[in-house]
């Protein structure tokens, strides 16, 4: 279970393979939301609650997770799942709605170092959301819009609030929407790559978290880092998968 401030994801693992996957909104009752997602994932897998050997939880609200046998940090979960999905991965970047973090891992998926962005949404998904509002564009269209840009027009993006006025000044300079959209992703990628440089960038780099699904951000980040980040098929489930993988090792260590 990956129980975050906004969403909950659940992955069911059987004999080392994913057999169920479900998500929902955390809402006001994250415990209940997690219970529902667990049920859904188990139904997919044709399993019952009593079939589960070990429940592991991660995410900022992991203390509220139901059924829990053990917990693991979000960074630890990212490292574990990152290496599972891409065995050559040594750096995992996780960009979610409100936080970006980067984890350095060894070949066994054990994290060796990590950084978290400094309590500021300018390097996270919430920034794209705010900028989409300022541009009067749908959030899901921001990425494809940015890819149409012919050149870069830098903005500062020191924070979401000031970023918005930066965008307004670009609008006043009559920059096109694609260029402004790209400026938004470039600014975000700047923040994320600065954070990664403090950690040291070891290839391969895997990008996970909800924002990994945005082609605009991925293009900007690749340009900024000068490499191609690996994106798993279900980037938003990586935290939950990491927890499930760790649950599996804990079952082996201490059989029920």
């Amino acid at each position: 279970m990956d129980l975050g401030t906004q969403r909950v994801q659940v992955v069911a693992l059987k004999d080392g393979a994913v057999v169920g996957r479900a998500q929902g909104f955390s809402g006001f009752d994250p415990t209940k939301a997690a219970e529902q997602a667990v049920n859904e994932a188990l139904t997919q897998a044709n399993l019952k609650l009593s079939d589960v050997n070990h429940f592991a939880a991660t995410g900022s609200a992991m203390d509220m997770a139901p059924y829990v046998n053990s917990t693991v940090s979000m960074m630890g979960a990212d490292a574990k799942a990152g290496v599972f999905l891409a065995p050559k991965a040594r750096t995992i970047i996780d960009v979610g709605a409100e936080e970006a973090r980067a984890v350095k891992t060894d070949e066994r998926g054990i994290m060796v170092d990590f950084v978290v962005n400094e309590r500021c949404a300018a390097g996270a998904g919430a920034f794209i959301e705010a900028m989409a509002r300022a541009l009067e564009v749908k959030l899901e269209d921001m990425g494809s819009l940015a890819l149409k840009a012919e050149r870069a027009s830098p903005i500062n993006a020191s924070c979401v609030i000031f970023g918005e006025s930066d965008v307004v000044s670009l609008i006043h300079r009559q920059e096109s929407k694609p260029e402004i959209a790209r400026a938004v992703f470039d600014a975000m990628a700047d923040r994320v790559s600065a954070m990664m440089h403090r950690l040291g960038i070891n290839p391969e780099v895997v990008l996970v978290g909800g924002v990994a699904k945005d082609p605009g951000f991925v293009a900007s980040l690749n340009r900024k880092l000068g490499l191609t980040v690996v994106i798993p098929k279900y980037p938003e489930y990586v935290g939950a998968l990491g927890a499930a993988l760790i649950a599996a090792t804990r079952v082996k260590e201490a059989p029920k």
Binding site: S60, V72, S73, M74, M75, G76, I110, M111, F114, V116
Partner: peptide, 9 residues
Amino acid sequence: TRVEAFLEM
């Protein structure tokens, strides 16, 4: 979150 991730590491 951060301190516990560090301790876990």
